[in-house]
Design a protein around this nucleic acid. Structure first.
Length: 421
RNA sequence: CGGGGCGUAGCAUAAUGGUAGUGUACGCGGUUUGGGACCGCGUGGCCCGGGUUCGAUUCCCGGCGCCCCGACCA
């Protein structure tokens, strides 16, 4: 992408109404646009990041036999009444509206009920199971107080997956496999070492659910961590009873501020019982299905990554999710010979499949470097008069600031050894 | 939902009971060109409604919006 064609531009200052670092940097760099409190649009650069995160999640869900689908944003009232979750007293984040023809609809804040209901039409026997389906949906939640930029909005993208099994062993084994898949996701995003699976409150159906908490100063949660034993406990379930059952002492725990990036629930057979979702077992008897649900906050993760991967100059994206991997910064482009040569380099990089953003704007170097730092692409290659004359490019990594000087062939060899796509 | 704060140009800010200045961004011209250069000219603004007043961006009331702390977060 040529930067002269890129929508949008960077800005020097963040809006006064944004305090959260993630929103400030994402807005300044032109990744997102604030529509209203807790509601953000994703501009071309931001969308590329969202899509990259989604693709990693998609690959890991597919690896545990998840099948992607997409449910509807509008939901039926009767469905939620059946599980007693339509009332605003019970679920306080509903957005609701009315059909012109009469009748109420809800805007999806979760899809457990609709998915369960839909399954009734498609599974009837133990032979149809197990099955696991997932989607990326924009969830709508009427939060009383949106905050922390894109980390807690009223509209956000979430991956939610639902598993259905005929027997407990299959169900529990699947539940366990999602933990591995989730950790794979977080590792690929570069937050694996800072993400812990915690015991959390699980509602009426299980003693505990599990949350995936990433260490992050901007987070809303506090977890108690014992790194040696690999135990992490949410504040809300920290009790003597919990500690005893886990075999840890209070003084062995370290309090850490975190953001919840994932959450998995084991519903057992209760949810299916509530929904009336049953199958025939091998004896021809009707039995409720074993269900689980598994969420990852895609846009929240993006916010967490900005919070963690940034410095005073701007964002520092890891290769796995950067909107482009390489920032080709052209200098001295007022010199037609330099420009032609830099254009050629850009074309060569593209031909090699390198994900490259080419700053072909006719601006002073300082401004280009500042923008480049702010946007935070992992590698910067400088194409200047000097580079052309010396036959070597300055290649800088955004994260560590390492500087290398490579010839064009060395540059390509470097890419071929470790493709920067 | 309880408490606190704030709404002036695309963005950031200043002053003011007598219709508003600066920076940045944007447009034009010129000088510049390896870390947000500079000169000149130009475009552009007081959240909405009501009240007080000769006159309200300013004071008062209401609304709407935004931010923070807490509560909430299946």
């Amino acid at each position: 992408m040529r930067q002269t064609h890129l929508f949008t531009k960077t800005r020097r200052e963040a809006p006064a109404d944004e305090v959260a670092k993630n929103a400030q940097l994402l807005i300044r760099a032109g990744y997102i646009h604030k529509e209203m409190a807790g509601v953000y649009a994703y501009l071309p650069l931001g969308l590329r990041v969202v899509e990259k995160i989604k693709q990693i999640v998609r690959e890991e869900m597919n690896a545990i036999f998840g099948q992607e689908l997409i449910m509807t944003a509008l939901q039926r009232k009767e469905l939620w009444e059946r599980t007693d979750r339509w009332s605003d007293e019970i679920v306080d984040v509903w957005f609701k509206s009315e059909l012109k023809a009469g009748g109420e609809v809800g805007f999806g804040w979760s899809h457990e009920e609709p998915i369960g209901e839909m399954m009734k039409a498609h599974i009837a026997s133990y032979k149809d199971l197990p099955v696991s389906v997932y989607q990326f949906q924009t969830k709508l939640r009427n939060e009383l107080r949106a905050k922390s930029g894109i980390m807690r909005g009223r509209e956000f993208v979430m991956k939610d997956m639902y598993s259905f099994a005929a027997d407990e062993a299959t169900h529990l084994s699947y539940y366990e496999s999602t933990k591995t898949a989730y950790m794979n996701v977080f590792t690929r995003l570069g937050v694996g070492e800072d993400t812990f699976i915690t015991f959390a409150a699980g509602g009426a159906f299980t003693k505990f659910s599990h949350e995936f908490q990433t260490v992050c100063e901007a987070g809303e949660d506090i977890i108690y961590l014992n790194r040696e034993k690999g135990i992490a406990i949410n504040e809300e379930v920290l009790s003597d009873e919990t500690l005893t059952s886990l075999g840890v002492k209070r003084e062995e725990l370290e309090a850490v501020k975190t953001a919840e990036v994932g959450n998995i629930f084991n519903f057992g057979q209760q949810k299916a019982t509530d929904l009336g979702l049953a199958i025939k077992n091998e004896q021809g008897e009707d039995v409720p299905v074993w269900m689980g649900s598994y969420g990852i906050g895609v846009t929240r993760l993006m916010g967490v990554m900005v919070e963690k991967f940034s410095d005073e100059k701007g964002m520092v994206w890891p290769k796995s999710v950067a909107p482009y991997v390489l920032h080709l910064v052209g200098l001295n482009l007022e010199d037609a010979a330099v420009r032609d040569w830099a254009d050629g380099l850009y074309q060569n990089l593209r031909a090699r499949g390198v994900s490259v953003l080419y700053d072909d704007r006719d601006l002073r170097p300082g401004e280009k470097f500042a923008d480049s730092d702010l946007m935070g692409l992992p590698y910067r290659v400088i194409a200047s008069r000097k580079a052309r004359e010396e036959g070597k490019f300055e290649v800088v990594t955004r994260a560590g600031g390492q500087v290398r000087h490579l010839t064009e062939d060395e540059l390509y060899a470097d890419f071929d050894a470790s493709p920067l796509t």
